[in-house]
C-alpha cells in the first residue's frame, strides 16, 4: 500500500473519533454548567483547556464561545465540524480504498454544520452533538461490516484506537481543570455532579453502575475510563487494540516495529497499574504521562510506515 494511502486512512480514523470525542467534551461542559450555582466560565474554560484549545485567561468564555470553537469552527481540527471535514477530505483522497458504504457514511450530510447559526447551535446543542456521534457511529459501523480485513482496515482502526485513548484521557482532564470553588468540599454535591457529567459524556453512566454497583467516586470513574478492561472506550482497551493492530501490520509486512514495541510497553504498564497508585502520584500527572506515551506510538507509526 502507498504510504500516503496509509496516512490518509489512519487520519480518517483519527478525525472521525475526534469529532465524536469533541462532541462528548461539549456534552460534558453543557452538563456541568447546568448544575445549580456552577462556575460557568470556569467550567467551559476547563473543557476548552482539556480539548487543547489555546486561550488567554482574560478571554470571555461561555456556552456560545465554546459552541463556536468546539462545534462550528471551520478549520484547525479542534471543532466537530472541522474534524468531520478533515475526515472526509482524507477519505476523499482515498475514495477507492474505502468501501462505498464507508465513504457514504462520511459524505452524507457532511456539510450539515456549514450554515448553522451560533445561536441555533447553542440552543439545540444536544441535537447537534447526537448528530455528530451518529455520523461517527455510521462510519465505524460501515467499516466493521463492509471493509476487508486487510491493511487498509488496520490503519483506520489504529488511528481510531489511538484517538479514542487520547479522548478518554482528555475527558478526565476536564475534571482536573474544573476546580471546585473553595467553599465546596471534595466529595460534596458539586464534585459528585461533575463526575456524573463525565460519565454521561462518556456514555458510561449505566456501565459504571453495572461495574461498581455503588456511589460515584473519583477512583472508580478514573478506573473505568483508564484501566477497566470491559469498558469499550477505556484507555487500556484502546491501547490493547492499537497493539494488536500494530502486531497484525507487523505480521503482514514481516517486520516487527518500534511502534508495536511502544504500544505493548504501554499496554503492560497499564495492566500493572492500580488506581490507588495513580491517585497517590497525582491523576493529572498520570494522564499527562499516558498522553505522551500515546503520542510516542503515533510518532513511531508514522516513521516506520513513511507517513
Amino acid at each position: 500500500m502507498l504510504s500516503r494511502t496509509a496516512a490518509n486512512l489512519y487520519w480518517t480514523g483519527r478525525y472521525v473519533e475526534r469529532a465524536d470525542a469533541t462532541a462528548r467534551l461539549l456534552d460534558m461542559g453543557a452538563r456541568m454548567t447546568m448544575l445549580p450555582g456552577s462556575a460557568t466560565r470556569q467550567d467551559w474554560l476547563s473543557v476548552l483547556k482539556a480539548a487543547g484549545v489555546p486561550l488567554t485567561e482574560s478571554e470571555e468564555v461561555g456556552r456560545r464561545e465554546a459552541v463556536r470553537i468546539l462545534l462550528l469552527d471551520e478549520e484547525g481540527g479542534s471543532s466537530v465540524r472541522s474534524a468531520l471535514t478533515l475526515a472526509r477530505s482524507n477519505a476523499r483522497a482515498e475514495r477507492t480504498a474505502l468501501t462505498r458504504q464507508a465513504w457514504e457514511a462520511l459524505n452524507d450530510e457532511w456539510r450539515a454544520l456549514e450554515k448553522v447559526p451560533e445561536a441555533e447551535a447553542s440552543s439545540s446543542l444536544p441535537d447537534y452533538l447526537e448528530w455528530a456521534q451518529k455520523r461517527a457511529a455510521a462510519f465505524r459501523g460501515s467499516v466493521e461490516t463492509t471493509m476487508l480485513r486487510d491493511d487498509r482496515y488496520d490503519f483506520i482502526k489504529l488511528g481510531g484506537a489511538l484517538e479514542r485513548a487520547a479522548m478518554a484521557l482528555r475527558l478526565l482532564e476536564v475534571k482536573y481543570f474544573a476546580l471546585l470553588p473553595e467553599r465546596d468540599v471534595v466529595g460534596g454535591g458539586r464534585d459528585f455532579h461533575q463526575w456524573n457529567s463525565l460519565l454521561f459524556a462518556a456514555s458510561a453512566l449505566r456501565a459504571y453502575h453495572h461495574v461498581y454497583r455503588g456511589d460515584v467516586t473519583a477512583w472508580n470513574v478514573a478506573d473505568l475510563l483508564v484501566l477497566n478492561r470491559s469498558f469499550p472506550r477505556s484507555v487500556a482497551l484502546c491501547i490493547t487494540e492499537a497493539a494488536d493492530t500494530l502486531g497484525r501490520l507487523a505480521l503482514r509486512y514481516n517486520q516487527r516495529t518500534e511502534a508495536q514495541n511502544r504500544a505493548e510497553r504501554l499496554h503492560a504498564r497499564l495492566a500493572d497499574t492500580d488506581m490507588d497508585e495513580v491517585f497517590a502520584d497525582g491523576l493529572h500527572e498520570f494522564v499527562q504521562e499516558t498522553l505522551k506515551s500515546v503520542l510516542d506510538i503515533h510518532s513511531a507509526t508514522s516513521l516506520v510506515y513513511g507517513f
Partner: peptide
C-alpha cells in the same frame, strides 16, 4: 522516487 535508473513508489513495505 527515482533511484538506480528506475521509478519507485513509496509504500508501507
Amino acid at each position: 522516487r527515482v533511484r538506480d535508473g528506475r521509478v519507485w513508489r513509496r509504500t508501507t513495505k
